[in-house]
């Protein structure tokens, strides 16, 4: 499914954070969202999920507006969300966390098998509370939980933050696998090499506005855009 965000504005209470965000992502494509800390990347993803109310602009899925829906109806349309900092239900077991994801669209053991095949390490941890997992395992679970939704659109907020290189590689590999199956992915990524490795396009966010959007294949790791928008 095609996700389109146009002229989105949103904020927290009186504080406006997003001023004009435009982005699109098509099936089989990975869009990377980059920008400095506080630019509004996480807020943009929350806006798509309906967790932060849009005060202006539109969000649509295959041309159908979704920004008017209550937040709890958004995931049922096939949008999987991996929040920044993972936000697992820490006292629930691995199995229960995945169960919450499966329930979104009424999926069952088949879908669970599919997800466990992607992250076999979770299989041995099913009865453990998710809070007791290692950082890498927690991230696998956060992604696994979102994949239990069988998403057509996947939103990943800094999925490699604070992970070891081997785990980062596994997560990038997973994103590329999902892209090959036609999932439309928006990923917030702070690291240039990671962004270049997994994305088709990059949208830069500055102060709640989307600035340039560029095709990744045209970019080098020392592109001046990175210095300008991300400060590297």
């Amino acid at each position: 499914m095609m996700l389109t965000v146009s002229r989105l504005s949103a904020g927290y209470g009186q504080v406006q954070v997003l001023r004009e965000v435009n982005l699109t992502v098509a099936p089989g494509e990975v869009l990377c969202l980059m920008g400095r800390n506080g630019a509004g990347k996480s807020t943009a993803l929350k806006g798509i999920m309906g967790l932060v109310r849009a005060t202006g602009g539109e969000i649509s899925l295959n041309g159908v507006r979704i920004d008017t829906l209550p937040a709890y109806k958004v995931p049922g349309l096939g949008i999987g969300y991996v929040p920044q900092g993972r936000r697992l239900f820490s006292e629930l077991t691995v199995a229960e966390n995945l169960q919450i994801g499966l329930a979104v669209r009424g999926h069952d053991a088949d879908r669970l098998e599919h997800v466990l095949a992607l992250f076999p390490r979770l299989r041995d941890r099913m009865g453990q509370t998710s809070g007791s997992l290692s950082g890498g395992e927690q991230q696998m679970l956060a992604i696994g939980r979102a994949l239990c939704v069988e998403p057509a659109v996947l939103l990943l907020d800094e999925p490699t933050e604070g992970l070891q290189p081997s785990m980062i590689a596994l997560i990038q590999e997973t994103v590329l696998k999902l892209r090959a199956t036609g999932v439309a992915t928006v990923v917030v990524e702070q690291r240039v090499d990671a962004a270049l490795a997994i994305s088709n396009r990059i949208t830069f966010l500055v102060n709640g506005r989307s600035a340039d959007t560029v095709a990744t294949r045209d970019m080098s790791p020392v592109d001046p855009l990175f210095a300008r928008y991300v400060g590297i």
């Binding site: 999920m49 309906g50 967790l51 937040a71 709890y72 109806k73 958004v74 995931p75 049922g76 969300y81 929040p83 936000r87 239900f89 820490s90 006292e91 629930l92 919450i100 994801g101 329930a103 979104v104 669209r105 939980r145 939704v149």
Partner: peptide, 10 residues
């Protein structure tokens, strides 16, 4: 445990 994330899962 987490209201917001609960909503993000329907």
């Amino acid at each position: 445990l987490d209201r917001e994330t609960a909503q993000a899962f329907g």
